[in-house]
Design a binder for these strands. Structure first.
Lengths: 245, 245
DNA sequence: TCAAAAGTGTTCTCTGTACACCCATGT
DNA sequence: ACATGGGTGTACAGAGAACACTTTTGA
C-alpha cells in the first residue's frame, strides 16, 4: 500500500558519523545536481541533507527513521528531534526554486529536523544510490536550502548535550579506549583536554567498565578496552539541581 | 489584507506566568466548551493551550508572537521553540474530533510548540475574550488534544534551561530580592534550597547588581533590591566545557 | 633499540554543602 | 514589645585544574 505524503511538511536528518580513525566528526550529505535541458549550463550543484515528506499515517520520528534507513540501511540509531524550521523564505534561493520546480514540491514547506549519532564505519557508501558522502562538520561543502543553518543548530545542540548526557558513546564502537573517548570530545567541542584528569574522571565512573581485553593489531602498546553500561548509568543517575547561571 | 492560513500547521503556546505573591508557576489556558445542538448534552468542556495556524507569509516565531499578543496583549516576551508534535493521532480523541469538526480544521495537523516566560501580573485577564485562566503547572485541569503532554515537555525544558541560563529573571519583575529568586527556583524545580548558600552564590555574581533601594510597603524588614544585568552577563559569559556525564 | 602512545600522582584552589542564630523593621 | 522575614559565617568535603615523566609494546 502506497503511503500518502503531506506535501508541506518534511523531516530533514542531520546524520552525524564519527570516524574513529581520522578522529573526525562528519555529516552525511547527498549530492544535488541539475543541468539545463540543453546540458549547456549547470543549474544546481551542491549538497543537501536527506529528508522526506511526512506520510499521513506516521509520526515525525518514524519519518526520520525511515529517511535514515533509506539512506544508510541502519535502524535503531540514536535519534533526536531538535528544531523545526519554517521560515517562509527558507527554500527561496534562486537555485532552490529551480530545484523545487523540477522536483515539484511545495515552496512553503516546514521541516522538522532530527539528528542521528552513529559510526561512519557502520555505513556502506558504496551501495548508496544518492551519492551520499561524509563531510567533516567543520568543513562543509556548499549547501542547498537552509541546510547549513540546520546543521549548525544540530551541531550546537550536540555540543551542549554531550556535556550532560552519555550520548558520546553512540558515536563509538561498543568497546573503546579512554583516549578514544577523549579524542571524540576534543573533536566535537574543538578543545584540548588534559589526559590525566580526563582519564581519572572516566575511570572513576561505575558505568565505564574495564574489560579483560586490550586492543589488538596495533603497532604500539595496546590500550585497555572499556564499555559503557547504560544499565548501570540509569541506576546511578540522579538529577542534580546545580544552578550555574 | 487578510492572511492565508496553512491548514495543517499550527503553533501552540505554553504561556508560563510566575505569580510572585503566591509563589506559583502558572500556565495560561483557555476554555473549550461545546454543547449538543439541543443543549441537552455537554460535548466538550475542558481547557487547551492557545494556538493558531501559521500564515503563509510568516515565520513560526512570528506566529507564536501573534498568538501571545492576541491572548495577552503582550509583545517582546521571552519565547522558546522547544518541540514539534506531529503524531497522526494527536487530535483524535473523541471529544477532540467533535471539536475539530465543529471548528473545521485538519485532523492531521502538526504543531510547533513554543513557551513564553512572563509575570502573571503583566496580564490583564479581565479584558480577555477567550476565558483565559491561570493554572498552577502542578495542578492542571482536564486538557484537550495532546496539550497535557506539550505542557509537560515545556516544563521539563524550562527546568533544565533555568539551571544553565539566566532565564529565571524573565519571570520576575526588574527589581527583585534574593529571596524572590530563591522562591522562584524552588517553585520551578520543586526543591528546597539553603538560603545562605543561595544568597552567597547570587550576590557574588557580578551581573546581580544591588540597587540603592529597598522594598517598600512591606510589613517587616524591607529587603534589598537587585537587578539582573544582561549586559554584564554577556560580557562575562564564557562557555565552560565541564563534562558531567 | 627505538618510536609511539599508554598510563600514572600530587598539590592547590574553588565550589558546594551543612548548619543556627541575630537583626532590622513595621505594626 | 513583638512578630516576621531578612540577613549573616564557618568548617568540611569533593571535584576540577595544572603539571611531566615512566612504561609497555610492536616493529
Amino acid at each position: 500500500m502506497k503511503q500518502e505524503k503531506i506535501l508541506n511538511i518534511s523531516v530533514d536528518c542531520v546524520v552525524f558519523g564519527y570516524d574513529i580513525n581520522t578522529k573526525s566528526l562528519n555529516v552525511l550529505l547527498i549530492k544535488r545536481f541539475l543541468e539545463s535541458p540543453t546540458k549547456k549550463e549547470v543549474l544546481v550543484d551542491d549538497y543537501v541533507l536527506t529528508g522526506y515528506h511526512v506520510y499521513k499515517n506516521e509520526t515525525l520520528g518514524d519519518t526520520a527513521s525511515r529517511v535514515l534507513k533509506e539512506l544508510t540501511g541502519l535502524t535503531n540509531q540514536y535519534k533526536k528531534q531538535f528544531k523545526a524550521f519554517g521560515n517562509p523564505d527558507r527554500l527561496l534561493n534562486p537555485k532552490d526554486l529551480i530545484w523545487i520546480e523540477n522536483e515539484g514540491f511545495n515552496p512553503r514547506t516546514i521541516t522538522i529536523a532530527y539528528y542521528f549519532l552513529l559510526k561512519t564505519e557502520d555505513v556502506d557508501l558504496k551501495a548508496n544510490k544518492h551519492k551520499a558522502k561524509w563531510f567533516p562538520v567543520t568543513d562543509l561543502p556548499e549547501l542547498g536550502f537552509d541546510h547549513e543553518k540546520i546543521i549548525a543548530e544540530a551541531y550546537e545542540d550536540l555540543k551542549v548535550k554531550c556535556l550532560s548526557e552519555p550520548i558520546i558513546f553512540k558515536l563509538l564502537p561498543d568497546k573503546f579506549t579512554i583516549n578514544e573517548v577523549q579524542d571524540l570530545y576534543q573533536s566535537i567541542l574543538g578543545i584540548e583536554i588534559d589526559n590525566r584528569n580526563f582519564r581519572r574522571k572516566l575511570i572513576n565512573k561505575k558505568y565505564i567498565i574495564a574489560l579483560d581485553e586490550k586492543q589488538v593489531g596495533v603497532s604500539k602498546k595496546p590500550a585497555q578496552l572499556y564499555i559503557f553500561s547504560m544499565d548501570v548509568y540509569r541506576k546511578m543517575f540522579q538529577k542534580n539541581y546545580l544552578i550555574s547561571i
